[in-house]
């Protein structure tokens, strides 16, 4: 064997571009081990919500006031539930791997000992979360279509919206979690103070206008509300001014890009200090 005292040709080693895919490949392999949980949750969640709230509450709403926004309650609720599932999938698949990578099994540190960079690891985690969101959104959409909550032609637009919303929230959680030094309380903080209020006050179950002005701002800053509004516009043509559509799209894009940039920088910092 010849001994190299300098690097001549890094044979078989990827350049800076491919690293994220190798991290994503690992994450997907890991998700595959949880496939039965992911699949049953992916189907169970929409079925339970649609059957209980969509049909149950929907019956009350439809008979007493003839639906919401001029459509049956199930149609009103459908896009909101799809957006919720997309956000949740995106958030879970960045938050838990990031906590694990930095704190639980410190896997990011062993990844960082290879030719990967911190930014590639961050990219890879989000990329894999994107695949998970795509799967979740497709499943959700399919169940919604079977229940008659969305029309069959909305598949491409609603799935694309789900992907955008999931990536936006995934990137936010990627960035936030990358700063967590001790896990104590972080998960319950996120769950109780952020995710739960977001779910309740984003116009998911009733239009945001139904809330007093004093708490309507929760909806305005919530990516879930923006995704939900866009979903309703795509699904049954909810009347929205063009500027609100633009703000919602830009807001979600900004969260995705901003979250990823902050996450990348913090991953890199944390793995080199």
């Amino acid at each position: 064997m010849t001994i190299a005292t300098r690097i001549d040709a890094p044979v078989g080693i990827h350049g800076p571009r491919r690293g994220a895919w190798h991290v994503a490949e690992y994450r997907l392999r890991n998700m595959w081990k949880w496939r039965s949980a992911i699949i049953s949750f992916g189907i169970g969640h929409p079925v339970l919500y649609l059957a209980s709230i969509g049909l149950g509450v929907g019956l009350l709403v439809d008979t007493s006031s003839g639906g919401v926004d001029g459509v049956p309650y199930l149609v009103f609720l459908g896009p909101a539930l799809l957006a919720t599932a997309a956000l949740q999938g995106g958030g879970d698949e960045t938050m838990f791997p990031t906590l694990a990578g930095f704190l639980w099994n410190k896997l990011f540190y062993s990844m960082r000992a290879t030719s990967l960079t911190g930014a590639q690891i961050a990219d890879g985690v989000l990329l894999a979360a994107g695949f998970r969101v795509l799967f979740t959104t497709l499943t959700y959409w399919l169940v919604l279509a079977i229940f008659g909550a969305v029309s069959w032609s909305t598949a491409p637009s609603l799935v694309a919206l789900g992907l955008l919303a999931g990536l936006a929230w995934g990137a936010v959680m990627l960035a936030a979690t990358s700063f967590v030094k001790h896990e104590d309380g972080f998960l319950s903080l996120v769950g109780r103070l952020i995710v739960m209020p977001m779910f309740l006050f984003s116009g998911t179950f009733y239009p945001l206008d139904a809330l007093p002005l004093a708490i309507r701002w929760v909806g305005w800053i919530s990516p879930l509300w923006h995704a939900t509004e866009l979903g309703r516009w795509l699904s049954y043509g909810l009347a929205l001014p063009w500027w609100q559509l633009a703000i919602s799209v830009i807001y979600l894009l900004a969260l995705a890009v901003g979250g990823l940039l902050i996450g990348r920088r913090q991953f890199e910092r944390r793995l080199t200090s």
Partner: peptide, 13 residues
């Protein structure tokens, strides 16, 4: 195997 993939090493190798 997974660690090798982080380096971008080919599956066959």
């Amino acid at each position: 195997y997974t660690y090798g993939r982080y380096f971008g090493l080919k599956r066959g190798y």
